[in-house]
């Protein structure tokens, strides 16, 4: 009797896992099928600069460029800020305050992204417009800054956990050898926490790539590469903002629609790749402590 219940339990667990895995696979297939029309009719021209549905031009390069620039700016700001904040909350701040500070920081993660977008439109873009004397404050740079604030809680929370989970004995042993706190953080704790911090960063990377609403509101939505290329204070477009803004205007099954889905496929593949990378990196460097 017990054996059969066990078996049912086992199959239930197995099938749940399979269904979840199958959903990922299914999404990939659907994206591939729906973008097939664009891939077959437009082919390599999808990897070009000009996007003009009226002329049948569907180049996604400027959107990909926008996505990478915005994500890059966000990560460059959020990684150092986030890791140092996490080191502060977990190693320097007295533990009775840690919980309070951490909960407040985690609240940041709970704010809906549309709120961030509204703040971006109402304040951030106006400030940048005045500060840099721009025609419009809605730029790749603005979106990057806004995004950095949005991914900060992910980095802080996971990095803080990574440090906090390191057993006390490593700190005490290092202290017993006469190391200063700064040396302990740098030479004992950092190497042990590295794998987990890396996963935290990759997870934040994924979130930055996929963020739509807030970015769409402040990025400027111009389907062009900035000129010069590194002038990030000019409006641009990301894959997500493009999809969010334009998908409703396309007719189902048209080449236009299919090209949009193709962009989704590219984004999905990048995020998938990052996830696999994150999982492998934590597997290789196992746990260094019991």
């Amino acid at each position: 009797m017990l054996g059969s219940t066990n078996k049912i339990g086992k199959y239930y667990v197995y099938s749940s896992t399979l269904i979840s895995a199958f959903v990922v696979f299914l999404i990939f297939i659907i994206l591939l099928l729906n973008s097939w029309e664009a891939i077959s009719t437009i082919g390599l021209d999808l990897i070009s600069l000009s996007w003009n549905p009226a002329k049948g031009e569907f180049g996604i390069i400027s959107m990909l460029y926008g996505t990478f620039v915005v994500t890059f700016i966000a990560l460059v700001i959020a990684i150092p800020l986030g890791t140092f904040t996490a080191i502060f909350t977990s190693e320097i701040l007295a533990s009775k305050y840690r919980f309070v500070v951490k909960s407040v920081l985690e609240l940041l993660a709970g704010i809906p992204s549309i709120i961030y977008g509204l703040i971006g439109i109402a304040f951030l873009s106006i400030w940048f417009q005045d500060l840099f004397d721009l025609q419009s404050g809605r730029t790749l740079f603005t979106a990057g800054i806004l995004l950095s604030v949005m991914i900060l809680p992910t980095i802080i929370t996971l990095t803080d956990d990574a440090f906090h989970n390191i057993p006390e004995k490593y700190r005490e042993t290092a202290k017993g050898l006469g190391l200063y706190n700064s040396e302990i953080i740098k030479e004992v704790l950092m190497p042990i926490a590295r794998a987990d911090v890396k996963s935290a960063i990759l997870l934040a990377f994924g979130r930055a790539l996929g963020e739509t609403m807030a970015v769409m509101l402040v990025v400027g939505s111009i389907d062009k590469l900035p000129s010069p290329l590194l002038n990030w204070l000019s409006p641009g477009q990301t894959v997500t903002s493009k999809l969010g803004r334009e998908i409703a205007e396309t007719s189902f099954r048209s080449v236009h629609f299919s090209a949009m889905i193709f962009m989704g496929l590219v984004l999905f593949s990048i995020v998938l790749f990052l996830t696999v990378l994150a999982q492998n990196s934590s597997k290789k460097t196992e746990r260094l402590y019991e």
Binding site: T173, A174, K175, G176, L177, G178, L179, V188, L288
Partner: peptide
């Protein structure tokens, strides 16, 4: 304190080697 601990060293109950 750090320099004090270089003069008064300590070994703990459970061995703790660094990775």
């Amino acid at each position: 304190i750090a320099s004090l601990r270089t003069q008064i060293g300590m070994v703990f109950q459970k061995p703790c080697v660094f990775p």
